[in-house]
Amino acid sequence: MDFGPHLLLAMLEGLVQASVLTLTALGLSLVFGVMRVVNVAHGEFFMLGAVLAWWITFLVGGPPALAFIVALLVAPLLVGTIAAAADWLVLRRIDYDPERTIVATIGLLYIIQQLTLMSYGPDARPVAPPFNTRLALPWFEFGSGGVQIYWPWGLSITSYKLFVIFAALLTGLALWAVMARSRLGLILRATQQDRETAQAFGVPVERVYALVFGLGAALAALGATLVVPIQQAHYLMGGDPLLLSFIVVIIGGLGSLRGTVVAAILIGMSDGIISVFFSPTLAKMLATLLVAMVLVFRPQGLFGSKPA
C-alpha cells in the first residue's frame, strides 16, 4: 500500500483506540475532578466491564447482535453498581483521605483482578461483534488525467469499528449535556467546586460521590464492552487503559473534561499511528515522554486552570 492510504488506515485505527480511551479517561477524570480521588482501580473496572460483557453474551446466547446490545447496557450498569458499593463501603469510611484512598484503590485493584482470575480464569476470550461488514475505502490520486478515485487493496474499516467511534461520540456528547445543562450536572459541579458549601445548600455529597464513582467506572466498562469484540477479554487487560488514562488526564489537565477529550484523541490517535508505522512500545514511550514534558512545562495540563 502507498503511504497515503496507509496513513489513513492508521488514523482510522487510531481513532477507534482514541474513542475507547476517551470514554475510559473521562471516567477517571470525572472521579478525580469531582471527588479528588485518584482511582488506581480504574483499569480493573475496565477489565471487569470486558469480562462481564463476555459473561453476558455467553449467558444470553442467541444472535450476536442481541447478546451484544444486552451486554452494552448491562455490563456498565453492573460495574457502576459495584463501584458505587465500593465507594460507599470503603472510600466513604476513610473519609476520602487522599493517601488512604490510593492505598484502598490499590487493594481494590488486586481484589477485582484475583476474583476475576478465580472465576473467569486466565484465558482471553472473544466476544462476537454484533455486525462486522468490511467497508472498502476509496483513495484519491492526482494524475495526468486529473483526480482519480480508486480502491486500494486492504484500505478498509469494519462497520463495527465505525460503530465504536460513533458510540463514543454519542456518549461524550451525552456526558457534556448532563454536565453543562442538567440539574444533576449542576449538583456535580457544585460538589466539585466547594464540597462544604454544596452541603450547606442541601447537596447530599456522600451520595453524589457514590454516584460519580459508579459513573466513572461505568464509563470505563462501556469502553471495555465496546472494545471486547476487537480485543479479547482477559483478567490482566486493565493495565494499559489505566496507564493511558492517567497520561491523558495529566496532559488534559486534572479535572478538565474538555482537556481529557482532546488529550485522549491526541494520545489515542498518535498511539494508533505510531503503532502501525513503528511499534506499540515506541508509542507508549513517546506518550510517557509527553507527560513528563507537560509536567515540567505546563503542570496544570493543556486545559487545566492554574493552581491558585
Partner: peptide
C-alpha cells in the same frame, strides 16, 4: 459563609439555581 464561598466557576443564574434547588 464568611468569604462568600460562591461557586466561582458557575454563572450567577447557576448559583441561584443551587439555592432554589435546596428547598
Amino acid at each position: 459563609p464568611q468569604g462568600r464561598r460562591l461557586f466561582n466557576e458557575m454563572t450567577v443564574a447557576e448559583n441561584l439555581q443551587i439555592g432554589l434547588m435546596a428547598r
